[in-house]
Amino acid sequence: MNTVKIGVLNLMYNKIETNINFYRSLTREHKNVQLIYYYSATRYVDRKLDPAITNTMKPLNLDDLNDLDGFIITGSPIEHLDFEDVTYRDEVNALLDRLNEMRIPQLYVCWGAMVALNHLYGIDKKILPHKTFGVFQNNILHSSALLENISDNFPAPHARYAEMSQQQINDNDQLTINVISDKGLLFMAEAKNKPQSFLFSHLEYQKDGLKKEYEREFAAHPENHPVQPENYYSPINNEPMFAWKDIQAKYFGNWVKQVISAKASVCN
């Protein structure tokens, strides 16, 4: 099989680490994957970027989409903002509109899932009473090819301050909620007739991902007394546990299989 090309619009603060996270997640079961990393062109129009970013990433260019076999929009630590207050919203919306017209598989992660559901389907966002942060069990409501070989009640990391309206998703005949956490929050939803998946877990995080997120929040705003992640540290040695490692490999491996299958169907 020829190499599949997957675009990643990386909106995270820790861009290089995020690129590595997605690379490890997407290539663990499939080696014939090429990732092309993008950053927001409008977000950084007047800001100088670290050469580590400009040497390995490209400003988003919608003309590239025709050469790609799949696309991912990552999370971003801005879920507390209204969508209209995001400075690069027009750029993201233009990307969403183009992707919505295409048949390539699309994976929207955390804030990426929120903005995609809002822009494409009119689903509202609400701020949670407190951050959901830690490793939680997740219950499968409706099957999906992305859940192949994943058993019910599986662990995955959640780290966000907002949630999309489950009622509106359930009322939309174009969408399905596939999995919710044991906290009653979204893990995954899908479009029924388009190759769009909405993942609310930071499933791409590696073993120390939640620890690093806590440390970043504490360093930035210790006065807010950020909470430690739940169900994450070993009771034996207090070290992080990578409880979702196998789920990560299977889920992203299943999504890459979708990309490969979609490319093959076009080629045939």
Rank of each mutant, 00 (worst) to 15 (best):
L175P: 00
I127V: 14
L175I: 10
K207D: 14
P155A: 07
Q167I: 08
K207W: 13
E215K: 06
H158T: 09
L141H: 04
I140M: 05
M164N: 02
H142D: 05
K211C: 06
Y205H: 05
L210R: 02
L199N: 01
K207F: 10
Q228H: 14
E163C: 05
S197K: 06
N231I: 05
A159W: 07
L128S: 03
D173A: 04
G184I: 07
A220H: 14
E215N: 11
A189K: 03
L185K: 00
E223H: 15
P226T: 11
G209R: 01
N149I: 09
H142E: 14
N224W: 13
A219R: 14
S151Q: 11
V227I: 14
N231L: 13
Y214K: 00
K207T: 11
Q196I: 11
Y205L: 11
A189P: 01
D208R: 00
P235E: 15
Q137V: 03
Q137H: 07
A189Q: 06
D152A: 12
R216C: 05
P157G: 04
K126V: 10
E217W: 14
K126G: 03
N237I: 13
N138F: 05
R160E: 03
E204W: 09
F187M: 08
I236S: 10
A219L: 15
L186A: 07
A156C: 12
Q206W: 06
E213S: 08
S165W: 06
A156H: 01
Y232L: 04
P229T: 02
T176S: 02
S165T: 05
S201L: 08
H225E: 15
P155I: 08
P155Q: 06
H202G: 03
S181D: 08
V227G: 06
T132W: 00
D173H: 09
Y214P: 05
T176H: 03
Y232W: 09
E148Q: 15
Q174L: 11
Q174M: 11
P222D: 14
R216Q: 12
E217Y: 10
L128P: 00
K125P: 02
K211R: 09
N237G: 09
F198D: 01
N178T: 07
Q228V: 12
H158D: 01
E230S: 07
Y214D: 10
N231H: 12
N170C: 08
L186E: 06
P155S: 09
P157S: 10
K211E: 15
S143W: 12
N237K: 02
E190T: 15
S143D: 14
T132V: 13
S144P: 01
H142A: 12
E190V: 13
P235T: 14
S181E: 05
K211Q: 13
E217D: 15
G134W: 07
S143G: 07
K126P: 00
N193S: 12
S143A: 13
